[in-house]
Amino acid sequence: MLQYSPAGQGQISERRRRLLIGNCPRQPDRRGFVADASGDYELAIVEFDDQGCYYERAQMAALADQVARLVRQDTDAVIVVFVHGWNHNADPLDAGLLGFRHVLSIAARHERQLNPARPRSILGIFVGWRGRTLFHPVLEYLTFWGRQAAGRRVAGGSVRELFGLLRRYRDARRAAGGCPLLAVIGHSFGGMIVYSVLSQSLIEYASSPDPQDSPRFADLVLLINPVLEATRYLPIYDILRRPGVPLHGHDTPPVFVCVSARNDWPDRILFPLGHAAARMMQRCRSRLERRCLGRTIGNIRPFRTHRLRGPVDGEMFSLTPTGNANRPGTPFWIVRAGSHVVDGHDGISHEPFQEFVGSLLFQHQGRTSHGTGPHSAA
């Protein structure tokens, strides 16, 4: 069982009151063996520094021991990874961490409904890094470009070891006939980190000639307001627009979902400002390529496949196709969200969006939990 060291939790709100403006070097309240446990799920936290190295190798060691135990016991798990973004960290009171815990509770609820006799264990992994550097309501916005550079360093660092550990677990369970589920979520610069690590496997999956093929790394990749240039998505968009038979069936659950808020002004203003000079030095072969320079994925209209609103007619959320779906049954979704679901550059703090994320996981739980192999609770 993962153990949690609560040292420093009570100091957080007091530190924030004292430090109205100042530098946040790291999360000093998260030392040593960092993990949490509750009745519905287990939560592990792994933190990285500005150079992309582990803050504490013991955090990764604790997670590796837990994953090894799952393999030894032939246990299938629903593993959900969350990489936070700009102006967030691994503070226990951080809105991103609190929202992620709620998502894990929703996933556990869906799993119990789907497999009441033998529900799979739920393991959440919160990837923390120095997304917040200043405690100030105005000056913190000046850190946007510096944190973008830090996120790029994190994407090329030890986080790849963590992702590799999870991929090996998924491969081992699938080879044994098990039914694991691996979902990776990234918010803001965390979305940039996730996409940087997993883009190759996503492109390989999109270009696969076998309709029965499955993603090489994760069952679901979800990006929320990713601070990621739209040109990075163009290779997948080009593949999905090729004429011919759809690569995947209509019942294929989404493999890649990018959700962007209508009123996300950092992505619409700060991001283009930081790329203005680079745009002047680049040449493009099409109007679409030129439009993608200096803009994020969700701000390119031809990419969008769905609209997300909520609450609607008594439901937490409403998801409707836009008519721009690249191909029938495509598992790649670019979703435009209303402010009642995702407000501004927010992550997963709104309940309608938390329910939406849970529903995405539920689609994959339904698909994976009816496999031929055994699965058991932890």
Rank of each mutant, 00 (worst) to 15 (best):
S5Q: 09
P6S: 04
Q11N: 10
R17E: 10
R17N: 15
I21Y: 15
C24L: 14
G32W: 07
I45Q: 07
D49Y: 00
Y54S: 08
A62V: 08
D65S: 15
V67G: 11
R69A: 15
H84R: 03
P92T: 03
G99K: 01
I106F: 00
R112L: 12
R120G: 05
L134T: 15
G146P: 04
R152F: 09
A155L: 11
L162W: 03
F163D: 08
L165W: 12
Y169D: 11
Y169I: 10
R170N: 11
D171H: 15
D171F: 02
A183D: 05
I185M: 10
G190Y: 02
G191E: 04
M192W: 04
D213L: 00
R216F: 05
A218Y: 08
A218R: 04
Y237C: 04
D238N: 13
S260Y: 00
D264W: 01
W265E: 12
P266Y: 03
H275N: 13
Q282P: 07
N299S: 13
I300C: 06
P302D: 07
H306N: 14
L308K: 08
G310A: 06
T322Y: 07
T322F: 07
A325L: 11
R327M: 10
R327T: 14
P328Y: 02
T330S: 14
R336T: 14
R336W: 10
A337G: 10
H340L: 13
D346N: 12
G347V: 00
P352S: 01
E355A: 09
Q363D: 12
Q363M: 11
G371S: 09
